[in-house]
Design a protein around this nucleic acid. Structure first.
Length: 282
DNA sequence: ATGGCGATATAGTATCGA
């Protein structure tokens, strides 16, 4: 029997507001016979005490979260039915958990990593990441973004040395190429597309990771984020800044990678759409 | 078109996101 898992990332822009969207989306994928087995969330904007563990467990999912008040916050949500029998609760489902980049002192909750044992699969290292926004290249926040990217790269090198099967998923706040930007002329040199950011993205690929989306033929002008303002979504004035990067061992088993625009059409949506990749067992 | 929308912390108006 060949089995497969689908892993996904979604910046929900407040889980307090978007919990119904998350549950609806997970259930829609189940009904479509393509259930999401690991969903990495970004921008929870809530503390760990307020994380809706109960509602997600009732829907059939186990969560590990790293939250904070008001800003940031990341989680990994696992479909219980997809887990190996030994992975039955939070402690056994999320092995070797790591919050934040080790050695990088930071109040902001942007990284959550864990090793997951799915049924019929080799263990997989999954990292939910919310990269800093950066604001603009001349701001202090941009310097923070670049130093954060440096720390991430150094840590990922270690993680890859220890975990052959690794996926980095989340909101990268970087559009890797002009094909990922609706209006590259207008955005040239700006935050999300500037050369230092794109170089940092390339440095991640140089560690041995691949942008799963670009492994496959894709419709042009496919994006993962659209500004709430100016009817960004209706005009498809977007950017592809949410990514799933795979190590070589996962790359060779990846059978598709896509963006699901559907939740962006719903009432009171997040400004991001989820991205999905499917990994075969071998 | 340098605002526009939306969430949060608040109680009229800030900050932040991308």
């Amino acid at each position: 029997m060949t089995s497969s898992v689908r892993i996904a990332a979604w910046n929900v822009n407040s889980l307090t507001v978007r919990l119904p969207h998350v549950i609806r989306w997970l259930q829609d994928q189940e009904k479509a016979n393509a259930p999401i087995d690991a969903l990495c969330l970004q921008e929870l904007k809530l503390t760990d005490e307020k994380y809706p563990h109960r509602a997600l467990e009732d829907a059939g999912y186990l969560s590990l979260a790293a939250g904070q008040k008001t800003y940031n916050g990341v989680a990994i949500i696992l479909r219980k039915a997809a887990l190996a029998p030994i992975a039955s609760d939070i402690e056994t489902a999320f092995l070797k958990p790591i919050r934040n980049i080790p050695g990088h002192i930071d109040e902001q909750q942007r990284i959550l990593a864990a090793t997951i044992c799915f049924k019929g699969m080799q263990p997989m290292r999954i990292i939910s990441a919310y990269f800093p926004n950066g604001q603009s290249p001349d701001s202090e926040k941009f310097q923070y973004k670049l130093s954060w990217l440096g720390a991430l790269q150094a840590w990922l090198k270690d993680e890859l040395a220890q975990n052959e099967r690794l996926a980095l998923l989340g909101d990268f706040n970087i559009a890797p190429s002009d094909d990922d930007v609706h209006d590259p002329k207008a955005w040239e040199g700006q935050n999300l597309v500037s050369p230092p950011e794109r170089n940092a993205f390339q440095s991640l690929l140089n560690l041995g990771l691949v942008d799963s989306f670009r492994m496959f033929e894709q419709a042009p002008k496919t994006y993962s984020w659209w500004d709430y303002r100016m009817m960004g979504f209706r005009r498809n004035a977007g950017m592809r800044i949410d990514h799933i990067l795979l190590s070589k061992a996962l790359e060779k088993n990846c059978s598709y990678s896509k963006v699901d625009k559907q939740p962006r059409t719903w009432e009171q949506p997040s400004d991001h759409a989820p991205v999905i990749a499917q990994i075969q067992s071998n």
